[in-house]
Amino acid sequence: MYIAQTLRKKNIAEYTLYMWQIEDLIRAYGCSLSRIKKEYISKFGYNDEQIDEVTDWYGNLIRMINEEGCRESGHLQINKVVVQQLIDLHNQLLDSSEFPFYRSEYYKVLPYIVELRHKGADKGQNEIETCFDALYGVMMLRLQKKTISPNTEHAVKEITTFVGMLNDYYFKDKNGELFKEQD
């Protein structure tokens, strides 16, 4: 909960990946709040008030997972909204002539996106979602201490740079600094 709050304010891309990880963590515990509290939350050394807050947060996420039919897979609506905001911003940036560096980085990453789709990624998925899926997949492989090929490492490095640019533009947009009215 505390990590999510911090990331939401500072790095929307990392926030998204973190929340996807939380969704998977909840699924790994069988969507059981009592198990999460006993086997996971208890390991962090929180005080009683913090334990109650974190338990409530997980309880709300579990409720949403159940209500939204995400017990087996998929993402919560709250996370889909963030990704959609990033997709909308991505499209605005590409449509504008004011962001040539972003457009250049996009075309640099596009072959990796095409390759990911060729290797089995959802072809109907937006390119930004494909980028996030790639980053999440590699993050999971690293957590499992699995080998990542040099080609994949290079692709992920490029995708990370691209998503980082989008992340920076996201916060500029939220602060009203991106698409300023011109005289």
Rank of each mutant, 00 (worst) to 15 (best):
Y2C: 00
I3S: 06
A4D: 07
A4W: 01
T6W: 14
K9D: 07
Y15N: 03
M19K: 07
I22D: 10
D24S: 09
L25M: 14
A28E: 13
G30L: 09
S32V: 07
I36Q: 03
I41D: 00
Y46Q: 00
N47F: 05
N47H: 06
D48Y: 09
D52S: 08
E53W: 12
E53N: 15
V54S: 01
G59W: 04
R63P: 01
I65F: 03
E67T: 06
E67D: 08
E68G: 06
E68Y: 14
G69A: 11
E72T: 03
S73N: 11
G74L: 09
G74N: 08
L76Q: 01
I78T: 07
Q84C: 06
I87C: 10
Q92E: 12
L94I: 13
F99C: 01
Y102H: 03
E105I: 05
Y106K: 04
K108A: 11
L110S: 06
P111V: 08
D122Y: 13
K123N: 13
Q125V: 00
Q125W: 05
N126I: 07
N126M: 09
E127G: 09
T130G: 04
F132T: 01
A134D: 02
V138H: 04
M139C: 09
M140C: 14
L141T: 11
R142E: 15
Q144F: 02
K145V: 01
K146N: 12
T147F: 12
S149D: 06
P150S: 13
E153C: 13
E153H: 15
I159E: 03
D168Y: 04
Y169W: 06
K180C: 07
D183Q: 15
